[in-house]
């Protein structure tokens, strides 16, 4: 009898959670856009997925008004010092020349923080530069060449870190992670998006998520593109052949 009661309670709870999750996921399509005044700030977060992903993401950001999109949070993967350097190079060049929207970021500067080596960490960057930005490091969901059967372990570790930064800290400190999150792949950015989804399920402030598919994707979406398409607020591709007529997303042409 007691067991029946417990199990039916569990069922009700589970049904409630499922309803909440499904309503959040479905509601994403209808989530109304906010309205902002011209002078209002917008906290921007961007995931730098290393290599070409980082270059493209920073290229996109270089076009933005950094007074408006302020502060900025750069999320990088563990061990990706190069992305941190490139982000810092962009910040420095924007600070020196705020109107320049064609800053070259392909070659990162070196020696900006005095440590001159490749192990320079985000915290050492932050200490040196009191710019309105932070660099946040999260564990990789999957390393290159990592065997597929160990991926759940690393992915879980990555998810916990994302939840810590996106959900837990804002919840405890009564702040928000960001107003908008820009993603362009690869894998780990999906994990970041899951943490944002958790915020929505819990009903706490969550950033709008914008996904921009890489310039390199001409005829088929990347895996992260396929995974994120139903979850993000805005799904943008750069080649027209990538979108079927009845599916969500838009093509804005070449953005980088």
């Amino acid at each position: 009898m007691d067991l029946d009661l417990v199990s039916s309670c569990l069922c009700v709870c589970l049904a409630g959670i499922l309803w909440r999750v499904s309503s959040v996921v479905l509601a994403r399509h209808r989530k109304p856009r906010p309205t902002r005044r011209h002078s209002e700030h917008c906290h921007l977060a961007v995931f730098l997925g290393s290599g070409g992903h980082t270059s493209e993401a920073l290229m996109l950001l270089s076009a933005l008004d950094f007074d408006r999109y302020s502060p900025r949070t750069y999320v990088i993967s563990e061990g990706d010092a190069l992305s941190a350097r490139k982000a810092t190079a962009l910040e420095l060049s924007k600070a020196a020349n705020p109107d320049n929207s064609t800053v070259r970021i392909s070659s990162p500067i070196s020696g900006y923080c005095g440590c001159l080596n490749r192990t320079c960490t985000a915290s050492c960057l932050k200490g040196r530069l009191r710019e309105p930005y932070t660099i946040l490091t999260i564990p990789r969901a999957r390393r290159v060449h990592q065997p597929i059967y160990t991926t759940p372990v690393t992915a879980t570790r990555s998810l916990l870190a994302c939840i810590y930064h996106v959900t837990l800290i804002p919840l405890v400190a009564r702040t928000s992670f960001a107003d908008v999150l820009v993603l362009n792949g690869p894998g780990t950015c999906f994990i970041l998006c899951l943490a944002v989804l958790l915020n929505q399920i819990l009903g706490i402030h969550s950033p709008r998520v914008v996904y921009v598919e890489s310039f390199a994707r001409v005829r088929s979406l990347s895996l992260s593109g396929k995974l994120l398409r139903p979850l993000v607020d805005r799904f943008v591709v750069q080649w027209p052949g990538l979108l079927e007529a009845d599916r969500r997303g838009e093509c804005l042409g070449w953005l980088v």
Binding site: R33, P34, T35, R36, R37, H38, E40, C42, L64, R68, Y69, D179, V180, V182, R208, V210, D233, R234, V236, L252
Partner: peptide, 9 residues
């Protein structure tokens, strides 16, 4: 696109 998405005029 981003300005529009974030509700800026």
């Amino acid at each position: 696109m981003l300005d529009e998405e974030m509700g800026y005029p």
